[in-house]
Write a protein that binds this DNA or RNA. Structure first.
Lengths: 350, 350
DNA sequence: AAAGAGTTCGTTATCGTTACCAGGTGCCTC
DNA sequence: GAGGCACCTGGTAACGATAACGAACTCTTT
């Protein structure tokens, strides 16, 4: 009895020998190319089935200089915001016969560089980078070395990469407007990573909208938070300690808001009566929080779909320079006060 | 000015020409192998840096028949249970210079087969399958064609794949024991996918533990639910309609429990006073639910770490036939009644 | 000074596939 | 019946990297 060793895979040559033809003929049959007689085609197909031949994509990739693989960089799949993007991108990729090389970079710039270089070494056909933290100059330098690239949630030079993003400034403006309309005046901000483009855009929205409402937002009421539940918990405690009078916490994303909710609960501060809380992203669990979270919803799955579709187009050499901007939507839940219940201008006492 | 075309990558030959040596010498320098004089080594390194050479992993893989890539199959990254496993596996993989090929199979057997075949075509060095739905026979047939494999959350023939799993029977028994101790008697079950090994093991635990307590669990109080929030919501409504007298819902996982909590809230049924709810997995958000969810926690990140470590060992030819079983832990939160507050034997009236 | 040992470096063949070109067969046309 | 034109089919050379072997060179040793 012979043991099956996966290292000794069936090759074109094996099939050719079995069918009594040349490797080229088999190659033509495998790739459904013309130039093979009906009789031999059937015979070769029989041999392929009999030996269980499967083409070696590595060898094919070496020859063709294409790997039918796409690299996808994500800050952290553990953040429920990103899996939706992954799903959207993957569904499109698989439908076109591509496979995904996924890398989490854990909000770490070094790992981002390493991931882009690893993709380069593997000769991926294209790259999608989600919410990259790298400075533009370095990022562009690395993306330029790829055949095609798309950046999610950040603007980019159209000759280097396409971009698909959400209008975070408008999203934040909607949240601030809602908070103001429900009577909040003394806002606290749990901001995101400084190097994050999305964080800067959101901060811009906060800044402009508060200014337009004539609200004061001093630096001591802005705290940088890690974009995680734990980060939000720590940041919220710090902010409350600095200024116990805040009546709303504007959080970088829903995870940070989740942490803030935990912290407020433990501090015995009522949400939204004493302090309102808003998140960003509308992750699937935002509606399950205690209380359910007011937040901004973007079509995340579509973000992934668009990104992959655009990448495939750019890989095919078409549609250079596209920049898709999706508009987000305000989702009001119980973590902010009801519009009518809030007499403007002050904190409601219990 | 010449435009940089990523298709014309720098090769060993280019470096060799630039340094005035043969390709073999360059290859030796790149791979840090002996047999190169100090002077030439420095000169070659200079050429590598000057041209920005990066080895072509595809070509290397063809020759070496190893791709330094590992295929990872996950039912759905959208379920927060799995990203933790991915992270655990990825951290170990990256530390060893491997890259992950990730595929979501969306609880679909066909996509599972397709993914395993795609991995085969790409000549991955090993495969990790999380909670596979395929029947054992077919799964083993496909895994056998890979150099090395590890199955997560399911037992397997040790010669074909290693396994790392959680003792789901014990986990479920703990939950049932807790429910019984807090006075629940008329349990309803929102069971998971029929083809899921984990679902069967959990069902076994429910079955045995209820039997040992002399409880009755008729078929009409068991409903199969899709392992998602929406699935849980639908299933919970259906179960309550069938039997409005249930005093506890045992859910396949935390997502299903989240759906059940939503349904109960909308039906105006108090949790845990009228109906207690338990989940399974302790996803990061379980503590944020309304009310926070009593569930079973397993070291998910470790599950991924162990799986990858075991896979690397099997790839190296060591440690065949390992089967790691992790014991889960009961996490009591507010979705179940307090032990003391529950007079045994009946439903508490409001 | 010659032989031996050790080092440095290059040549060749190969991994599995496909592009390109050349050879062969049958059939139609004038 | 010879030339021409389709159509099949096969040989060869790449794609980029490396293992194995062997040549050339340096240095030591007797």
């Amino acid at each position: 009895m012979t043991v099956f060793d996966p290292r000794d895979r069936v090759t074109l040559a094996d099939v050719a020998a079995h069918a009594g033809v040349s490797v080229m003929t088999v190659s033509r049959v495998v790739n459904d190319r013309p130039g093979v007689g009906e009789g031999t085609r059937v015979r070769v197909q029989g041999a392929i089935a009999a030996l269980g031949y499967r083409p070696n994509i590595v060898a094919r990739g070496l020859k063709a200089r294409r790997s039918r693989t796409i690299g996808l960089i994500v800050p952290d799949v553990t953040n429920p915001y990103f899996p939706e993007i992954v799903r959207g991108a993957e569904d499109v990729a698989i439908a076109h016969g591509f496979t995904l090389l996924l890398t989490n970079v854990i909000e770490d710039v070094e790992r981002e560089v390493a991931a882009l270089e690893a993709f380069e070494d593997r000769r991926v056909d294209g790259v999608i980078a989600c919410s990259p933290r790298l400075v533009s100059e370095r990022l562009e330098e690395l993306l330029e070395r790829h055949h095609a690239a798309v950046i999610v949630n950040r603007r980019s030079r159209p000759d280097i990469a396409g971009s698909v993003r959400i209008d975070h400034e408008q999203g934040m403006r909607q949240l601030i407007r809602h908070l103001v309309a429900t009577g909040c005046r003394r806002l606290g901000v749990l901001a995101g990573p400084v190097h994050s483009f999305a964080a800067r855009e959101r901060m811009l929205g906060i800044d402009r909208e508060t200014r337009e409402h004539g609200l004061d937002l001093p630096d001591e009421r802005i705290i940088v938070s890690a974009p995680t539940v734990d980060g939000g918990e720590i940041a919220a405690r710090a902010l409350i300690r600095r200024d116990p009078e805040v009546d709303a916490l504007v959080c970088f994303n829903d995870l940070v808001a989740a942490g803030a909710l935990s912290a407020l609960a433990e501090l015995g501060i009522a949400v939204p009566d004493e302090v309102a809380v808003v998140g960003y992203d509308d992750i699937p669990f935002a509606r399950m929080f205690t209380p359910p979270l007011t937040t901004i919803r973007a079509a995340t799955y579509d973000l992934g779909r668009h990104a992959m579709t655009m990448l495939l187009e750019r890989m095919a050499g078409r549609g250079r320079g596209v920049d898709i901007v999706l508009q987000p939507e305000l989702v009001v839940r119980a973590s902010t006060r009801h519009r009518l219940a809030a007499p403007s201008g002050g904190v409601i006492s219990l």
